[in-house]
């Protein structure tokens, strides 16, 4: 991945992190590897990336199995926060952790924008090595 891409991905995550009620943001690959994150020290980013990949993988399969159409997002709704694992392009998963009483309209809108930005960047990164070859 080109050096610049990583910085630009971090910038997208940080922008999302600035929304009120958003507690943490990370970006993982679909096979569970961490790409970038702005998580608090108390969370292990690698484990979270792997778990998010399992959740998205399982949710996507379940949606397919039940004929629910294309998969967009899994939400883990818990006591003090929600975790949104959103498909970001073919290869990415955007993990957003928000306060449980967050304004979900605003959150979903912002997550949608971030996902668009992330998938554009990932696509760009995927094309680059071929262009060099």
């Amino acid at each position: 991945m080109a050096a610049g891409i990583h910085g630009r991905l971090i910038a997208v995550l940080q922008e999302l992190r600035r929304i009120p009620d958003v507690l943490a943001v990370a970006l993982a690959r679909r096979d569970g590897l961490l790409i970038a994150h702005v998580l608090p020290k108390s969370m292990d980013p690698k484990r979270i990336a792997a778990m998010a990949a399992s959740i998205v993988g399982t949710s996507e399969m379940a949606a397919g199995e039940m004929g629910l159409g294309p998969f967009f997002q899994s939400i883990v709704d818990s006591g003090s926060a929600k975790m949104l694992a959103t498909g970001a392009g073919e290869e990415g998963i955007l993990i957003t952790i928000v306060r449980t009483d967050a304004n979900m309209g605003l959150v979903l809108l912002s997550v949608g924008k971030a996902v668009q930005a992330v998938s554009n960047l990932l696509e760009e990164a995927a094309v680059e090595p071929e262009a060099r070859a």
């Binding site: 690959r29 679909r30 096979d31 569970g32 792997a50 990949a53 399992s54 993988g57 399982t58 399969m61 199995e65 290869e91």
Partner: peptide, 13 residues
């Protein structure tokens, strides 16, 4: 069988 795999690796089961 069902395999929950991504990019050639099983991510769930």
């Amino acid at each position: 069988s069902v395999s929950i795999d991504r990019m050639g690796t099983t991510v769930a089961f």
